[in-house]
Design a protein around this nucleic acid. Structure first.
Lengths: 148, 148
DNA sequence: GACGCAGATGCAACTCTTTGCATCTAGCAC
DNA sequence: GTGCTAGATGCAAAGAGTTGCATCTGCGTC
């Protein structure tokens, strides 16, 4: 599902099917996530409320995102240094390779993660939920520069 | 390398070979990590300084751990909810499966992660540094309970 | 062993995030 | 439509983590 503008009733449906109450605050937060092209931090979500931000408390944003994460509505990713970003899971499932040298981000297809899920299921009988990985390392370009 | 008590000169050697200055503060922090059986948060490291804690500032602990992480001396792992723990990489390399239901932790062997590293190298020419993963999901026990 | 300086530390202010508690409300039952 | 209650929100205060800047020091150089 790509970022197609969702009606309020669509958003309510997302919440209901995840056993979450549909409050105006949650609809606002969900709608912002829906419109966002990339990941947002909790604070960025709050900022984007703009003039509506007085309608909802900062702590509500934090609590709601945490709840959405537990309910499987959004993914939470630690991009390093304690920066946590959120993204609707209904979006295109992907992961990130982050270069420690140039800070560049490469989008990684979910298929690369499947062998890990498989190994975890088979060896540990554990059902993994790897929604959105951030993998640190060194990109091809920087590795080449360092060799030269 | 298992937790064998290290002499100060061993610790200095660890720092020097990672291009890090050997200050008394860093030696203290390193020594605490060496003695710890499991992972520690930045604040736990600070607590364990005990009476020596006045010899070093809380922000130094945070900055030092971050620097150690970048230098590849320790692993930093987000155990969820923004709780970040640190561990000497010289210790036994492992990862964790964390159950969302019972909060139980299963230690996962590094071998399970190797296919992911391989896929990332081959498909993206990216050299991944996956030191210490925390994978959320549902453990076998809780999955069984839910089925019943 | 003295010197110089890049890098480390201490301090204090600041931002980000969490938490406890009182109040409010979505959604179910009637 | 009304009433009820578990769950959600607002508020305020606390806690966790970060940052800028002045000072200090490890360590390479002479």
């Amino acid at each position: 599902m790509l970022p197609i503008p969702a009606s309020t009733s669509d958003l309510i449906h997302i919440l209901r099917s995840a056993d979450q109450r549909a409050t105006p605050q949650r609809l606002m937060i969900l709608s912002i996530l829906q419109d966002a092209v990339d990941h947002l931090t909790a604070d960025e979500v709050f900022q984007r409320l703009g003039p509506m931000s007085s309608a909802l408390n900062r702590s509500t944003v934090y609590r709601t995102l945490e709840r959405f994460r537990d309910a499987g509505i959004v993914s939470e990713t630690d991009l390093g240094g304690g920066v946590r970003v959120y993204e609707l899971l209904a979006m295109h499932r992907h992961h990130h390779l982050i270069c420690q040298r140039c800070n560049g981000m490469i989008e990684m297809d979910d298929a690369a993660v499947e062998p890990l899920r498989k190994a975890i299921r088979e060896r540990y009988g554990f059902e993994p939920r790897v929604d959105h990985l951030a993998v640190w390392g060194v990109c091809a370009g920087c590795a080449k520069t360092e060799r030269d």
